[in-house]
Amino acid sequence: MAVPVQAGGAEVVVGRRKREWPLAVILLLPSAVVFGLFVFYPLARTIQLGMYRSDPFGGLGRYVGPSQYWDVLTSESFLRSLGVTLKFAALTVPTGLGLGLGLAVLGHQQLRGIGVYRTIFSSTVATSVAVASLMWLTLLNPSIGLVNQALTKLGHEPIIFLQRPGWALVSVAMATVWQNLGFTFIVISAGLQSVPDELLESARIDGAGPWRRFREVTLPLLSPTLLFAFVVLSINAFQTFGQVDLLTHGGPLHSTELLVYHVFQRTSNDPSTAAAEAVVLFGIVLLLTLVQLRVLERRVHYGD
């Protein structure tokens, strides 16, 4: 390339650089306004709200300071709700991950018509929280739900799934695992597809059986995907709301009162308590997201 053209090009770039920032402002402004108004401001405001004590009419009440956090976060009702949420995460995350991995491995086989099975395994991704909850409400109805009709036919007592303290959280967890299954299947399947066939083939030639190939070749290469799915499912567990609102209303005896449901119930009549609890929710999700970012960062490194 001729030298004058290059020099001219460089000049244009330098000249443009000076005048380009107003364009950047125009391009970024719409997003920045939305983020400022509905993400950054409310985050700061929520932290501030948490230091007040609501008056009996749902107003802001008086300023108490950071000690308000201590009062809210050591309250029996918050700790109970945090405990229920942790139990819920323990019920949904490992189960969802295991089932998703199992389905992904099954769907990864080279068989005729496998596409139909893959579509069915991903199908729950099409259901919203409300749609999935209504489907499970239909299945788990105490008297005429199909599960209990089947149990009765088999000579078993019907189970009051959603109104028994021992069963309610498990039932909400079942509906949740099912609803997330499509997502988990899709993500883990994509991870499986990125495992190079040559590696599996050379392991096979070395005499490794299918189980050893899976454990020693597939699983290590899949671990970042599994960790990603693990983090997303954990964050989902901490953000769960709709299933509780539709299936159990937090009951019976607060046994399904997850954190977000607890916050939601207090949003309009006790905003300060709700805010203090929301800050804890933010902290937990932030921690999980940072773990996820670390994982992605490492993967980009490996990719290079």
Partner: peptide, 21 residues
Amino acid sequence: TLFLATLMVPAEATIVANYET
């Protein structure tokens, strides 16, 4: 980085203040 940071704020954590707004 500020844009990406918004991904770390779950909508559930800001409903109280957003409701107020």
